[in-house]
Write a protein that binds this DNA or RNA. Sequence first.
DNA 1: TTGTATGCGTTATCAG
DNA 2: CTGATAACGCATACAA
Lengths: 370, 370
Amino acid sequence: MITIKDMAEMLGISTTTVSNVIHGKTSEVSQKTVERVEKLLDKYEYVPNISARSLSQNSSKIIGVALKCRKDKYANLFSDPFFGELIGALEAEIRAQGYFMMIYTSNDISEIIRNVLTWNVDGLILVGMLHDDFIRIKSRYKNPTVLIDSYASREIMNYVNIGLEDEEGAYEITRYLLKMGHRRIAFLADNMEGVDYTRYLGHLRALADYGLEMKEENLLIFHPGTVERESSLRELYYRVKNYTAFMCCSDYYAVLLMNYFMDRGIRIPEDLSITGFDNNLMSRVVRPALTTVRQDVTKKGRLAVEYLLKMIQGTEFSEWDVKLPIEIVIRDSVREIRQEDAGDGAADSKDVVEKADVCGNCCNMDEKEA
Amino acid sequence: MITIKDMAEMLGISTTTVSNVIHGKTSEVSQKTVERVEKLLDKYEYVPNISARSLSQNSSKIIGVALKCRKDKYANLFSDPFFGELIGALEAEIRAQGYFMMIYTSNDISEIIRNVLTWNVDGLILVGMLHDDFIRIKSRYKNPTVLIDSYASREIMNYVNIGLEDEEGAYEITRYLLKMGHRRIAFLADNMEGVDYTRYLGHLRALADYGLEMKEENLLIFHPGTVERESSLRELYYRVKNYTAFMCCSDYYAVLLMNYFMDRGIRIPEDLSITGFDNNLMSRVVRPALTTVRQDVTKKGRLAVEYLLKMIQGTEFSEWDVKLPIEIVIRDSVREIRQEDAGDGAADSKDVVEKADVCGNCCNMDEKEA
DNA sequence: TTGTATGCGTTATCAG
DNA sequence: CTGATAACGCATACAA
């Protein structure tokens, strides 16, 4: 590892000159010197030491990406293809802009804060944070920050969020279910804050349009990492006859349920309709293909990086709330039911046969490692 | 951001003493001073500056993870859940060990080298590199390096690879297909080097056991990123009647093909059997569930980090080649055919109906961004 | 056109 | 027990 100092000594010139050549401040340097330096640069394949540069410039060229994983410690967050896609998009864009990406996944906000400060990252992207988390981080970390999929309240300064028309998406897909004749619809989420809560509001609005109220027994909340448990799935299975449709807050859950139910003889969509949210790889690959809400994850990632860099370069957004459009993707997981059927919905689900589970691993995915 | 110097000044003591307290070298410091320093540490929530530490220690606490993506520039590598799982496992383990992870995905080896050197990473994990790439990297980067899923030749020093019983896996699953009566088996891979080539060898060995030879038309190679193209899929579709089974080198491809074929009326496994490799999320979620080769991705990641840290701590492995065991997972994507049927295999595939593609996005996933 | 000097935050050596 | 000082590699203000 050759350094600027080494080369300066070799050529009998000062480090300043070498540095100037490296940074193309060639107007200040004689042509001869430039050539001599460049020859060495090339010969020894000089690579700058970022730590040193960070220290002297007080800028690290790192973009931190922090994901709060509310799951168990050992669960693998990236099992959900949504996160895989998002991380991939972020990485590509960050690199394309000449920055470096450092990921932190933790359920401990102080750990995230420590990491971000210790690396002196130039900017921070927070995924799926709740209001309080954001406040805590901002109280210690002063550099530009962009949120993805967060719903922090408006009082905060420098609030930039790249989100989705969540309310609209939930509204539209609920309306679709209603239009298809469904009346007893279960709403499944893993929390009642942020994104999921907003989707819940959209769900309510659609119901209201049809003069319906949300019944308590239709609201199914399973904390993150618990839906995958056999006990939860079994519970849902026993309650399935109460509904004609499940509306899930992610494709991940929808696909999980769909397979669990199908493996036990419930026909989708004949006995039960089901919808997802995200339009990720699995929703397209599963059969029957999942009716869901499309979002452009790649664009989400790219926009987040774009805004962040603008902020790093000095642009001030005192408040900015991007909501990417959604789109309903109708595939094959929802059936139309005539209104007179609606009353007894999955009535024929009494025929359900307890079948061997050919998908054992699938249901316990996240428990494997624990 | 308070620094050691700041605190030293406040207390009227030297930075050395503060540093000693921070690192628990408390035997050298009086009890009083320790307390005074700790109070400040706490009050100002001191966080060390890693750049400075890197510089003075010549050790960055960073583990680099480099993925060579041979796909198009804009393709998202993490679409394949295998990589998502692997990255998740690596991240968790690296963090648990008190290190930081920095990811580079690039098809340009020099770029990877530059990044690794510029950050002075303490250790490097290379995923899916070929022999030449490894040599190039090692010629410039001298710190510990662990390979994942590589097949570099044995002459190299400090060669540590965490791999799989690839040959065995391919052998077993091919034998299974043969046992089920299949004789006209297509072998689908995206290259003929490294992992895929080893799997090919296993495939050949199984065929030989049955006194069969590999026919040229049974070897299907599609370069990375090209299988997803409509044209490739269509080509495969037209050739499908020549085979009774497809053996794919990844679940990703298997699932891709399976859905494309099914959407066009080919019944799986009745008309065509299909197998994968990895046992990732999709293989479990798809229907018919995919018969495949199981590997423990989480363990792969954990082992890689484990070995790397041992090397960083000074253990010398002059050569080490871990091959994790595989296991055939029999699900529903392969049917048994009587030997007399084998001759005309997918004969009834002449009934195939060209159906609307309900899975439009799926096939062009990677082209969306291009 | 080139060089000198200084600072960034931390750790380590060695002397008091 | 404590402190002064140098060193890590780079960039920059200021001199020459």
